[in-house]
Design a protein around this nucleic acid. Structure first.
Lengths: 339, 339
DNA sequence: CTGAAAGCGCTTACAG
DNA sequence: CTGAAAGCGCTTACAG
């Protein structure tokens, strides 16, 4: 296939001139320009971006590391990031870390080796290897943290309002008059899980309710752990529960079904993360609607800005998450019974 | 940051020797090798893969074009592909075409420009621009089609058994004794949609049932069209329905809820694509379990083999999809009433 | 076994 | 305004 010299030869100009017209980076007389354009068409010339990147030290590719794209939280985030990235001329390299620090490190290393201009990362628990930190710094690859913060990393971050969101959800249950409000938490190694738990506690306290340790189950954000949480917690007879993510909520509802406990009559549920099916299927879950698409889009936006301004002060963006009230919280039931 | 010459200088060898040890591509005496390894460590040298790719004409990156990663069908597919790709040392560039031929062409072009070694594509309706076809051929980039076939493309493909899967689902309804079995189809421009519709027809015919055109609604695989299908079809009083994908099933159930039609008592449902929440929430959908992860993994596998053997004959793999029987088909109900 | 040199395909000062 | 030349950071015949 044709390269820039083939085009130059055919157009009877230099490679520099071809480059100038391809990139519109310098004035080229209409005559030469016409010749170049015609040669490009005739030869089907397409610049080799690998070579360009090597020369310019800019690859126009971004890395995105998520725990697991198959976890329903992530697809919209990735879509948001991809849309923003491609709108700005960047291309996206996707990796799944499974929240495994070893895998994460390997991917990070691979991304740096491919000379991505920046990386969006939902950090696995634990800190980054110092060697990686050094590479990132030395290579000047921009970094923005998504969803989770690891304070050891000095960089931009775009986050959710986990604590406030959980607070709103639980406060809603408190207002509805529930008194035995349980919680299924996420792994304590994740900042999101900790923040959501804090919100739960604050809402209980706000309602004058004591936090009962027997009404707490530590999950891992996976479906199975939600199910196991159900098996455990349901015997403690909570009248309501806050489940820290939607995958665990699915598992929890499975346990309720198995125990033949009705929702919301026997136990009300509020969870996190909204999905289309929640509106159609029973019990219709009341949930915190995390702005997933926006999370990814903001992440990409901030990263791209960082690439343009490496020395600007670090930013931390926090996205608001509205509560979506449906039937699992027992809103209608309680509204009626109060009437 | 250090490049290969810095390492060579420090180790008092040539760049060729450094290259040989980094790639383990030629014998290097233990002495020199030791010096090189130490220099690499000391300098934190990491090969520039952009430069390597330029020199070797192999980028070890793959492109993956899906319609929309936010559509719940795709995340697992992508995960399967990413796992296989990374296991083989490849990295994955993700794009969303929205089934828009223009976007698709733009992405394809970008991927070729970045010199990916191969592309996995779930083709948007319509044929590829000849110019693109030529580029692909000329650049020697391997191509494998995923899920959908476009016969104009002479290349490997990994597909689902859409027709058989739909046949099994509908035959199940037929066996259960339903006689007014409706269908919500996908867009006729998609091979999957056409095949599923065929399966529906075959199953009706197999049961001696006539295909009633008033029991057919053409959807677009989107949630909203499933909802609209419901609004339309429910007045035709079907006793069962086959919905061609899960997004439309969600919409359809929403319509049923709105019309206060019970499932399966008033109308039974069989749909396509399985999701974890279907087991927990009501109505629990009977559905065809498309092997999404495997689809992606196979796609990547075939593509990587193709890269290794550009001249092997084209292959077409078809994956089997088991029917998952739950309550929306009315299996239990009918089983009881037959007893 | 090891190194000098050319080549991969671009971009970008720098002359003219 | 345009081109010759060096440089980006590797790999790979080819000598020796």
């Amino acid at each position: 296939m044709a390269n820039i010299y083939d085009v130059a030869r055919r157009a009877r100009v230099s490679a520099a001139t071809v480059s100038a017209v391809v990139n519109d980076s310098a004035y080229v007389s209409p005559r030469l320009k016409g010749r170049v354009d015609r040669a490009i068409d005739a030869l089907g010339y397409q610049p080799n971006l690998l070579a360009r990147s090597l020369a310019t030290q800019q690859s126009y590719t971004l890395g995105l590391i998520v725990p697991d794209i198959a976890n329903p939280f992530w697809p919209e985030v990735v879509r948001g990031a991809e849309d923003r990235a491609s709108a700005a001329g960047y291309t996206l390299l996707l990796s799944n870390s499974d929240d495994d620090p070893v895998k994460e490190a390997r991917y990070l290393d691979g991304l740096i080796a491919k000379r991505v201009d920046g990386i969006i990362i939902a950090k696995a628990p634990g800190k980054l290897a110092p060697a990686l930190m050094k590479q990132l710094k030395a290579r000047g690859v921009a970094l923005t943290q998504l969803l989770r913060v690891n304070d050891l990393l000095r960089c931009d971050a775009v986050l959710l309002d986990d604590e406030e969101a959980a607070y709103e959800g639980v406060a809603h249950l408190v207002r509805l008059g529930y008194t035995r409000i349980a919680i299924v938490t996420g792994p304590p190694t994740l900042s999101t899980a900790v923040a959501r738990e804090k919100g739960y506690e604050a809402a209980l306290a706000g309602g004058g309710l004591a936090a009962d340790p027997t009404l707490r189950y530590q999950g891992d954000f996976g479906l199975r752990s939600g199910y196991e949480a159900g098996l455990q917690l349901l015997r403690r007879r909570p009248d309501a529960i806050f489940v820290s993510n939607s995958l665990m909520a699915v598992g929890f509802v499975k346990a309720m079904r198995q125990y033949q406990r009705r929702c919301p009559q026997d136990v009300a549920i509020v969870t996190c993360d909204d999905h289309a099916w929640m509106e159609s299927f029973s019990p219709q879950l009341t949930t915190v609607n995390f702005p997933r698409y926006e999370l990814g889009a903001e992440g990409a936006r901030i990263l791209i800005e960082r690439i343009a301004h490496p020395d600007a002060p670090a930013r931390r963006v926090r996205l608001k998450s509205p509560l979506v009230i449906r039937e699992s919280c027992g809103y209608q039931l309680r509204a009626v019974s109060h009437a």
